[in-house]
Simulated assay, not measured.
Amino acid sequence: MQTRDLNVFYGSNQALHNIELDIPRHKVTALIGPSGCGKSTFLRCLNRMNDVIENCRITGSVLLDNQDVYNANLDVVLLRARVGMVFQKPNPFPKSIYDNVAYGPRIHGLANNRDELDEIVIESLQRARLFDEVKDRLKAPGTSLSGGQQQRLCIARAIAVEPEVVLMDEPCSALDPIATAGIEELITDLKEEYTIVMVTHSMQQAARISQKTAYFHMGHLVEVGETEQVFSNPIDQRTCDYVSGRIG
């Protein structure tokens, strides 16, 4: 994906200014920066989640395989199947574990029969490193799982429709350190099959699992580069101040 001259306005307030960012395929791109700097706003632009926010106006372009996702003829439902999202707090549907994962494939007609649907559900849970823990209780409510398990269920639900890109908005912020470690290992695995863009407030997390890091400050993309370079030898003084803990 790429963004070109991307601007976001909430009414008369401009939240993002001329963002130009290339998101590499099959890598983890971390978005870092102080609270309110535009990270989550940018993330929501990538699958048009900002469409549901009143008074939000977007200019510029967001390209997925060289197609502008803001083209008036584009089907937003299909876009969100191609660009899935995992939110800050685990949000399983009030359905069974099985039906949480099966929901997307059913809507998009990805299975011709129950056997094919079973296969999709099982494979998605396996990819999310959850199947072995829930295989004997697939009819249990998704909300009956622990926080870390619920987040992995939400990841399984997102990848069940075979997206190209998975967006993650602080996916570990509501989790304990053990559950966080499990999600980080999972993200590292998933990048082999999916392009991942992740907002994180944890610079240590960004350093551990991302290959590319973009630093946002007050609605501007200040610096972007290989993660090791951004953390060890930042070009912009504002990036240096943030990653060293002097601001933020």
Rank of each mutant, 00 (worst) to 15 (best):
L64E: 02
A72D: 11
L74R: 13
V76W: 02
L79N: 10
R80W: 05
R80T: 05
R80A: 04
R82P: 00
V83R: 02
K89W: 10
N91C: 14
F93S: 10
N100A: 12
V101D: 03
Y103F: 15
P105G: 12
R106Y: 02
H108N: 04
G109H: 12
N112M: 07
R114P: 02
R114G: 02
E116Q: 15
D118S: 05
I120M: 04
I120W: 01
V121C: 03
I122A: 11
S124H: 02
R129H: 15
F131G: 07
F131V: 05
V134M: 00
D136M: 03
D136G: 07
A140H: 09
P141E: 04
P141S: 13
T143R: 11
S146G: 03
G147Q: 05
Q149V: 11
Q150V: 06
Q150S: 03
C154S: 08
I155F: 05
A158Q: 03
E162L: 06
L175E: 09
L175N: 10
D176C: 03
E184M: 10
E185G: 12
L186C: 14
D189A: 14
D189Q: 15
K191F: 04
K191P: 07
E193Y: 14
Y194S: 03
Y194T: 04
V197D: 02
V199N: 03
